[in-house]
């Protein structure tokens, strides 16, 4: 399940809803990304249509690689202040290894394939964030 939204999400609610009632689940893993305090605020822009398409493809690829009971990807857009949550990815499976690995895969692929862009609002003005080589390297390990 994927969701793109302006409003915040509740980590407990989202975690509880993951594979709710599925007694085959033995473990679930959740990653939450937040705005670091070094940035006063940022605005997340995205490409409506392509974003949904890419996130659905990322979920499908994770389900193809691991036996997952449920997947959740939530990404916020619009203006976010320091400390606010940006993204949640989560995976549930019968065993922990698939849940851990799928969760790391989901965020690594999201960072280099989903069309979101961060514009940081700094004292000196607005700055579009540069892509990081380390994110590209993190994606390559899943080839």
């Amino acid at each position: 399940m994927i969701r793109i939204q302006r409003e915040d999400f509740d980590v407990g609610t989202e975690t509880a809803a993951l594979a709710e009632g599925d007694t085959g689940v033995g473990g679930l893993c959740v990653f939450v990304g937040t705005v670091r305090g070094e940035v006063p605020a940022m605005t997340l822009e995205h490409y409506p249509g392509m974003t949904e398409r890419q996130l659905e493809a990322i979920e499908a690829e994770a389900r193809r690689r691991w036996p997952l009971s449920d997947v959740r990807i939530i990404h916020r857009i619009g203006r976010l202040e320091a400390g606010e949550r940006i993204v949640l990815v989560a995976a549930a499976s019968a065993h922990r290894e698939a849940a851990f690995r799928a969760t790391e895969f989901l965020i690594d692929w999201l960072k280099t394939k989903a069309p979101f862009w961060k514009c940081e609002h700094k004292a000196g003005g607005d700055v579009w964030v540069d892509a990081r080589d380390s994110d590209e390297q993190a994606t390559l390990k899943w080839r």
Binding site: Y47, K111, T112, A114, P115, F116, K118, W128, V129
Partner: peptide, 10 residues
Amino acid sequence: VAFFPPVTGG
């Protein structure tokens, strides 16, 4: 067709 910088979400 769309043109954009390398993506920076997550």
